[in-house]
Nucleic acid binder design. Structure first.
Lengths: 216, 216
DNA sequence: CCAAATGGTGACCAGGTGGTCATAGTGACG
DNA sequence: CGTCACTATGACCACCTGGTCACCATTTGG
């Protein structure tokens, strides 16, 4: 938790620190990110950072939380869309969600970086602390969408909602990052594709996830 | 690439260095892993490490490659099983593969750690260098399994094989790690489940991946 | 006008980093 | 015996780390 000093800060200064932190932690992760660099890049004394936060991990957690909330705010409208008001299939709505997510990541390299850093954090303590709230947020947002799909008859009534949710939460951020971060894709070339085709690839994966592969 | 000195080494010494490196890199990742610690833990002078490898990244790449080859060697028999000789459905065979993978990770914490470290490596250069060969290896192993499933009529003929492969390569290592590494699961409690139930959870996810969710 | 409170600063600390290199030990060969 | 190739070693290097703290500037309010 940030100290009161942080919340009392002029928003412009807060934003400068936040941006510098997202950039540095996004590039080098939690343990690799340097507070010296962040302070220098934000134009702030290192000592100030310790007036705002208890220590490095407190700082990182706050930065990660802010970023994920900003992203979630953009996704929310697409999570709330129901079938009858949009006239779209479930697959189309999920495809739209992914496409918006990817577009957001294209336009916001800082948020993309810190998302990658939290998604790939190795230390179990840091990872759990940072990802559990994010998971809760996305389960909360995605469950109504999926449950709605079942209730509206677009998804089979015997769908294992929790299992589908688990896979979506694994797959969606991965799809959003893979076009911009090398070495995340394997059999489908999500990376190094043009803006035009990357959405098509992502929708292809969403399609494949939702359609049956095994013969009945 | 390791230097000749490394390959000339007595296997016992090589193994000690390898184990220490897997443990350290597995706990702290590439950038966080300390060569001092590895040398001390292996009972070897730090200078020796630089007789064996050009630098840290060369060392890490070799350790990661060795570990992934050991794991692959254990998985291979389950990748090669075809339907007619085993009498199993595709879902059952994939479930077996996952279960063996999980069991292997349970018994081999060192290999598990280094797998986690390479899967979650943040630096794009290191990640690409380390994961691309692993991806190739697993595409090579999984494609015949999937293609065989299609040819035998167990998978629908219109299955997008590459898309399914991409999702398997994302999902399978995740399933193998999640029971032992905190903060990787979301809607399905893979972590903190007993040895009895974790396989059931994993099979549940495999089932859900292969069955159709969307109504036809 | 003083006093208290708040926030900013950067030199400083102990400790760790990847990497180097001069030195020494070892065994094979002539 | 000497010599040659190979390997092991750890003190040493320049540099960076998260974190501290004594000191200063500004503002508030009595």
């Amino acid at each position: 938790m940030p100290r009161p000093t942080w919340t009392n800060l002029p928003p412009a200064r807060r934003e400068r620190v936040l941006q510098a932190a997202m950039a540095e932690f996004g590039r080098h992760g939690y343990s690799g990110g340097s507070l010296n660099v962040i302070a220098r890049e934000a134009g702030v004394a290192k000592g100030s950072l310790f007036q705002y936060f208890d220590d490095k991990s407190d700082f990182f957690a706050h930065v990660a939380e802010q970023a994920s909330m900003r992203i979630y705010a953009v996704m929310q409208p697409y999570l709330d869309k129901s079938a009858d008001e949009s006239g779209q299939t479930f697959t189309e709505r999920l495809g739209d969600l992914v496409e918006v997510w990817i577009d957001y990541m294209a336009d916001h390299p800082l948020e993309r970086g810190i998302t990658a850093a939290t998604t790939m954090e190795l230390d179990p303590q840091v990872r759990t602390a940072v990802r559990e709230p994010v998971h809760r947020l996305y389960v909360q947002g995605l469950r109504p969408l999926v449950q709605g799909g079942v209730d509206e008859g677009q998804l089979r009534s015997d769908t294992d909602v929790d299992a589908l949710l688990a896979m979506l939460i694994l797959l969606l951020p991965h799809l959003a990052l893979a076009p911009f971060e090398a070495g995340l894709d394997s059999a489908v070339p999500l990376h190094a594709t043009s803006a035009r085709t990357r959405a098509a690839h992502a929708r292809r994966l969403v399609d494949t996830l939702l359609t049956g592969k095994v013969t009945e």
